[in-house]
Structures are given as C-alpha cells and as structure tokens.
C-alpha cells in the first residue's frame, strides 16, 4: 500500500469513530444527543437510521439523567460512537447508580388494554430502545455503567 492510500485509510477510520461528553442535565442531554446525532448524519448514516438513533439514544441518556444520577449532583455522560459499513455501536458511560440488579431487564410493551384512567404514563423508554436496536449490552465495572447500543446500518453508508 502506498503512503497516500495508507494515510487516507487512517483518516477514514478516524472519521468513523468519535467520542463526546456532556453533563447529565435535561438540557445538556438534549444538546448532547443532538450533537452526536448531527455528527452521525454528516458521517453518512442513512436518514431512517438517524431517527432511530435519536430516539434510542435520547431514551438511554434520559435514563442516566433521571435514574443513574438521581440522588447526586449530575456527573458526566460519555458517548462513544463507532460506525462501519455494517453496524453502528454507541456506548453510553456514566458514573452514577447501577441499573437495578446491575443487569438489563427484559422489557415488555406497556399494557394498553385497561381503561383509560389506568393507561401507563411511563415505562416506554426501554421498550423503545429494544425495538430500535439489534443488540444491547450492559456492564457495570468499577463504579461505571456502560450501556452499548447496536444499530444495523447495511451497506448504504460510509
């Protein structure tokens, strides 16, 4: 491989992953997710996937803001993205409280069959994350949560 092609390849692989951090407040989360999604869009993530990522990532980050840092001063949320021709992996790290039982729960769709006054007003977040991703992993290590979301990209990208 000549030097030019080699450096182009390095540049390419650098463009396809990036990290971004923000504070775990509702407004910073809104801006932070927006920045990450915009960057993925500019990297060539197909429009339909961009919407999926925005929905799922917003839910994951909201969980950090509302639950992981619920009882403390909001810490940081660290996002890492890795996009190749097949998949997009997004990791979300925080130093807040672990998930209950330090594990992902299986989520069922909310029960909408009851009378109107019993309809759920929450609990849709994890269900949306599961519906929009092809894989979800969670690790608790040394006081840090690391949630990873995978999206299938297909070949239409990068």
């Amino acid at each position: 491989m000549d030097l030019k092609a080699h450096s182009a390849q390095i540049e390419n692989s650098m463009v396809n992953s990036f990290a971004y951090s923000f504070q775990a407040t509702e407004l910073d989360a809104r801006g932070g997710v927006g920045t990450v999604v915009e960057r993925l869009r500019r990297m060539g993530l197909p429009a339909a996937r961009v919407d999926d990522v925005q929905i799922a990532l917003s839910e994951a980050v909201n969980n950090v803001v509302e639950h992981a840092y619920a009882d403390t001063t909001p810490g940081d949320v660290d996002i890492g993205c890795n996009l190749d021709t097949e998949q997009l992996w997004i990791s979300i790290r925080d130093a807040g409280l672990p998930l209950p039982n330090e594990a992902l729960a299986t989520r069922k769709p909310a029960d909408l069959t009851g009378p109107r006054e019993d309809l759920p007003e929450g609990g849709f977040g994890w269900f949306l994350i599961r519906e929009l991703t092809s894989a979800v992993t969670y690790e608790r290590d040394n006081g840090t949560n690391r949630l990873s979301l995978c999206f299938e990209v297909g070949n239409s990208c990068v």
């Binding site: 925005q54 839910e59 309809l119 849709f124």
Partner: peptide, 16 residues
C-alpha cells in the same frame, strides 16, 4: 419534530 417517552407519557396524561 421530536418526541420521547416522557413526551409520550405527557400526552397520555393530558388525555386522562
């Protein structure tokens, strides 16, 4: 242009 699960919950609440 965008709604999340909290917004969805707020619309359900508004309906109730």
């Amino acid at each position: 242009k965008f709604i999340d699960s909290s917004g969805l919950g707020a619309i359900v609440a508004a309906m109730k």
